[in-house]
Write a protein that binds this DNA or RNA. Structure first.
Length: 246
DNA sequence: GCGACAG
DNA sequence: ATCTTGTCGC
């Protein structure tokens, strides 16, 4: 049922109808329907996690159209080595609208995920999960199609409403503050390393916030404030774009 | 008209 | 996201 609802994304994508009132209402409907199924508790044991995927996209354009490429990097949890990678490139027909990122990027993500031969136990995204006006950031929305636990990691803060700023965590690796809105914890501002801006971690689905932060920190290396999962995916999209532009 | 605005 | 040089610091 959930899966069928999400397929409506494809109709909107294929049709290329952008942000008219009907389209926006459909997007609202999908998010509002799916959010009832969010389950922010672990559906796994941490020691069962073997393969973790990082997902990211890059964009470019020519005189004809706009294009995007999605890269997925699958890493082994303990060795942090890349086990597999997949990518999908194509024309982008959906604009970026804050709050509706999934409708722009999810079609690419699902196409790339189809190409994987391995089955990641968990996916990590650039962007939010539960930290969203409808608790339906891209990490959460993607979970319903991928059928796997997800984590959202955003590089900048998305305000949910008025007076919903976050408290800056102390300047120490691993330090965090809860992002609480109307008494509810939406996510965490996490200082992944000292002397870097915090990232914003929220559960996507089928994972609790504590575990999401723990896994995020597990993959943070010296080279980046982002976990290497999404960092490698980011680098892969840049490399892929250079390839496609020739 | 003005400000806000994950990627 | 993307367009882009230098520059400060380890």
């Amino acid at each position: 049922m959930v899966f069928i609802l999400s397929l409506q994304i494809y109709y909107m994508w294929k049709g290329g109808k952008l942000l008219d009132k009907k389209c926006e209402e459909k997007w609202d409907y999908i998010q509002n329907t799916l959010k009832a199924k969010i389950h922010l508790e672990n559906t796994f044991q941490l020691d069962e996690i073997r393969l973790v995927a990082g997902v990211d996209l890059a964009y470019w354009s020519d005189q004809k159209a706009n294009y995007g490429v999605c890269c997925i990097q699958v890493l082994d949890y303990t060795s942090k080595k890349v086990i597999e990678q997949a990518e999908y490139a194509g024309e982008v027909e959906v604009p970026y609208i804050s709050g509706y990122l999934a409708f722009r990027e999810l079609p690419f993500i699902l196409k790339a995920a189809e190409k994987l031969k391995t089955s990641p136990d968990l996916y990590m995204f650039d962007g939010n999960g539960y930290l969203h006006s409808r608790h339906m950031g891209i990490a959460t929305q993607a979970s319903f199609d991928l059928g796997k636990p997800t984590i959202g990691i955003a590089k900048t803060y998305l305000k949910i409403g008025n007076n919903t700023d976050f408290t800056m965590p102390e300047n120490k690796a691993g330090a965090y503050t809860d992002i609480v809105i109307d008494g509810e914890v939406y996510g965490r501002a996490l200082r992944t390393r000292t002397d870097v801006k915090p990232v914003f971690v929220s559960g996507g689905n089928w994972i609790d916030l504590h575990t999401a932060v723990k896994i995020t920190m597990h993959f943070v290396e010296k080279e980046s404030r982002l976990p290497v999962t999404t960092r490698y995916a980011d680098l892969a999209t840049h490399e892929a774009r250079r390839r496609y532009q020739k």
